[in-house]
Computed example of a mutant assay.
Amino acid sequence: MNELEHTFYDKLMDCANNFLEEKRFPRSSFRCVKNKESSSIWFNSSLVMRIRIRKNYNQIDFPVMSKQRILEFFPDAQIKKDTVSVIRAPESSASPTSKEIDMFCALIYDLFMRMPHQFSCCHRYMECSNAKRCTDPDTEHALGCEYRRNLQKGIIFFGVNRNV
Rank of each mutant, 00 (worst) to 15 (best):
T7V: 07
T7G: 04
T7I: 11
F8E: 03
F8P: 00
F8Y: 06
F8V: 03
F8S: 02
F8W: 04
F8Q: 04
F8I: 03
Y9D: 07
D10R: 13
D10I: 10
K11F: 06
K11E: 12
K11M: 09
K11L: 09
L12H: 00
L12E: 00
L12N: 00
M13H: 10
M13I: 12
D14E: 10
D14R: 11
D14H: 06
C15L: 09
C15H: 07
C15K: 07
C15N: 06
C15W: 05
A16K: 01
A16Y: 00
A16F: 01
N17C: 06
N17T: 06
N17L: 08
N18I: 03
N18M: 09
N18Q: 10
N18R: 07
N18C: 07
N18F: 03
F19V: 01
F19P: 00
F19I: 03
F19Q: 02
F19M: 03
F19K: 02
L20E: 00
L20A: 02
L20S: 02
L20T: 02
L20G: 00
E21A: 09
E22S: 11
E22V: 04
E22P: 02
E22G: 04
K23Y: 13
K23S: 06
K23F: 13
R24E: 12
R24T: 10
R24D: 12
F25Y: 14
F25H: 05
F25I: 04
F25V: 02
F25A: 03
F25W: 04
F25K: 04
F25R: 05
F25G: 01
P26G: 08
P26Q: 10
P26D: 10
P26N: 08
R27G: 07
R27P: 03
R27T: 07
R27W: 05
S28T: 13
S28K: 07
S28G: 05
S28M: 09
S28P: 05
S28D: 08
S28L: 07
S29I: 14
S29T: 10
S29A: 15
S29D: 09
F30C: 06
F30N: 00
F30A: 02
F30G: 00
R31A: 07
R31Q: 14
R31T: 10
R31W: 05
R31K: 13
C32R: 13
C32P: 01
C32N: 06
C32M: 12
V33T: 10
V33K: 13
V33S: 10
V33C: 09
V33F: 09
K34W: 06
K34P: 12
K34N: 15
K34H: 13
K34A: 12
K34S: 12
N35Y: 13
N35S: 14
N35D: 14
N35M: 15
N35C: 15
K36L: 15
K36V: 13
K36F: 15
K36P: 05
E37G: 15
E37P: 03
E37A: 14
E37Q: 15
S38L: 11
S38R: 08
S38W: 12
S38N: 14
S38H: 09
S38Y: 11
S38A: 12
